[in-house]
Simulated assay, not measured.
Amino acid sequence: MTPFVTLEGKRALITSGTRGAGAATVALFRELGAEVLTTARTKPDALPDELFIAADLTTPEGCAALASAVLARWGGVDIVVHMLGGSTAPPGGFGALGDAEWARARALDLNLMPAVRLDRELVPDMVARGDGVVVHVTSIQRVLPLPEATTAYAAAKAALSTYSKSLSKEIGPRGVRVVRVSPGWIETEAAVDLAERLGAEGGVEAGKRMIMQSLGGIPIGRPSTPDEVANLIAFLASARAGSITGAEYVIDGGTVPTA
């Protein structure tokens, strides 16, 4: 019996695939038959060497080196999943974000430019073949920013989403699909650590409640899991989603209010 979703024979580059939702996506793509490469600045001991290329994607040089290595290994790529993202900006709202803080946080260098640079290197081959999928992982923060903490990150993810939509309109007619996945709070290792710090004496569950309250609540009562995010990405990258392009799929347990 043919599985509902398969990625058999596909070559997939997944950035930031060493932990959290990225690691879950790498594992699922391999399970579904894809040949996978992932990247980060340092390789975890448990990750096989043949799956990993070390690169600092916050720099033009790092993106160029990764793209060159991927093309040297495979000659082209069928799926690119841009998982890289994050925030290092200080809390305190817009007033805390002077020019130096914007530069130090490198929000655009982390959340936007790696996708722009890698797409520029890898998408032309997809267009030439008339086939391929690009997945940009955005965030609900682009429509639900937390002013005290995530202004820079939210602005960068909004830029990524707009760039992704524009790219989809340009290359969709040439056979290459571009989709966005917009997670809310994901229960990663880092999220659990944050919950432990916030919860203090109340423990992890108290910290989780604090985070959910800061988001205005999560109707399903819990964050998404890395595996749930990976499941959505795999479906969108598969032939089952063959007519889907230019769209953004929110996976947030109902956090963002909708009409």
Score class of each variant (00 low, 15 high):
residue 76 G to F: 08
residue 77 V to M: 04
residue 79 I to M: 05
residue 80 V to P: 06
residue 81 V to L: 02
residue 83 M to F: 08
residue 84 L to E: 12
residue 85 G to P: 10
residue 86 G to R: 04
residue 87 S to E: 08
residue 87 S to T: 13
residue 89 A to F: 01
residue 91 P to S: 00
residue 91 P to G: 01
residue 91 P to T: 01
residue 92 G to W: 05
residue 93 G to I: 01
residue 94 F to T: 07
residue 95 G to P: 08
residue 95 G to N: 10
residue 96 A to D: 12
residue 99 D to F: 11
residue 99 D to R: 14
residue 99 D to S: 10
residue 100 A to W: 07
residue 102 W to D: 02
residue 103 A to I: 02
residue 103 A to D: 11
residue 104 R to N: 15
residue 105 A to Y: 00
residue 105 A to C: 08
residue 105 A to H: 04
residue 108 L to Y: 13
residue 111 N to R: 13
residue 111 N to W: 12
residue 112 L to G: 14
residue 115 A to L: 03
residue 115 A to I: 06
residue 116 V to W: 13
residue 117 R to I: 07
residue 118 L to C: 15
residue 122 L to M: 09
residue 123 V to W: 08
residue 124 P to S: 01
residue 125 D to N: 09
residue 128 A to M: 04
residue 129 R to N: 12
residue 129 R to E: 10
residue 129 R to T: 14
residue 132 G to L: 08
residue 132 G to R: 10
residue 133 V to R: 00
residue 136 H to C: 03
residue 137 V to G: 07
residue 140 I to M: 15
residue 141 Q to Y: 12
residue 142 R to W: 05
residue 145 P to N: 14
residue 147 P to M: 06
residue 147 P to E: 04
residue 149 A to R: 06
residue 149 A to C: 01
residue 150 T to W: 10
residue 150 T to F: 11
residue 150 T to Y: 12
residue 150 T to S: 13
residue 152 A to G: 13
residue 153 Y to S: 11
residue 153 Y to Q: 03
residue 153 Y to R: 05
residue 153 Y to L: 06
residue 156 A to D: 11
residue 156 A to E: 05
residue 157 K to L: 07
residue 157 K to Y: 09
residue 159 A to D: 14
residue 160 L to T: 09
residue 160 L to G: 06
residue 160 L to M: 03
residue 160 L to F: 03
residue 163 Y to R: 02
residue 164 S to F: 00
residue 167 L to V: 05
residue 167 L to F: 12
residue 167 L to P: 09
residue 168 S to I: 00
residue 170 E to N: 05
residue 171 I to C: 01
residue 172 G to C: 02
residue 172 G to M: 00
residue 173 P to K: 02
residue 176 V to K: 01
residue 177 R to W: 02
residue 179 V to I: 15
residue 181 V to R: 10
residue 181 V to F: 11
